[in-house]
Amino acid sequence: MPPEPEECAAIEVQHLTKEFRIHHRGSIKQAFLRRLGGKDHIEPFTALNDITFSVPHGQTLAVVGRNGSGKSTLLGLLARVYKPTSGSVRLAAPGGGPPRVAPLLELGAGFHHELTGLENIGFYGALLGMNAKQLRERTEAIVEFAELTQKVDTPLYGWNDGAKLRLGFSIAVHTDPDILLVDEVLAVGDEAFQNKCYRLIAELQANQKTILFVSHDLAVVERVAQRILWLNQGVIEMDGSVAEVLAAYRAASV
């Protein structure tokens, strides 16, 4: 028998199910009419259905699947944004204990456009779990990696999207995460910066960091991932090596 996988896995997902009761945001009038008409019963929608997998430390796992297959829900559950309906999610640092988890945010989320780059680093870093000391030590490296120089003292509304993406990416990777969660944006910016991102990811991989990313870009998946999880309508369609799963996924997508 091999050793228990729970002992060493970075991500341990067991029988994970997530149902959404979609609450349409609306007015009090609508809510009242719904209740009055006896239509308050909302059909639950199962986004993930009894998913079980585990990711060992240092592995880079890509999650692929069509829109609505549950990829983003899975990411949300791993980031603790959602509560599981049933089943469990366990994340662990290499030595056991709670890990540092860094989600990469969408462009603009978490930034305030009237504040300068430096001021934003403070808030965004704190949001991703850095403390005052870490922020002081790493701010310089963050600015340098994001290639921002003097721009960092100006408010964000004057920045282009590329610069904001670079800053967000740079802050996230400088939190020194044990587990990096990425939705689509693995490498950002122009080609030169993207290459830099890939080099950094290779470095993270060499340092036994765990990366879980969701992507539709199969070329990126092929380049970075060490294993692929294919989701289809809330269940695992396939879980295996890059070559194997990609071949099957491409065949199914035709």
Binding site: G76, A79, R80, V81, V101, L105, A109, L127
Partner: peptide
């Protein structure tokens, strides 16, 4: 909303 949808706090 963009933050609470992506990051735990």
């Amino acid at each position: 909303y963009g933050v609470i949808k992506k990051v735990y706090l």
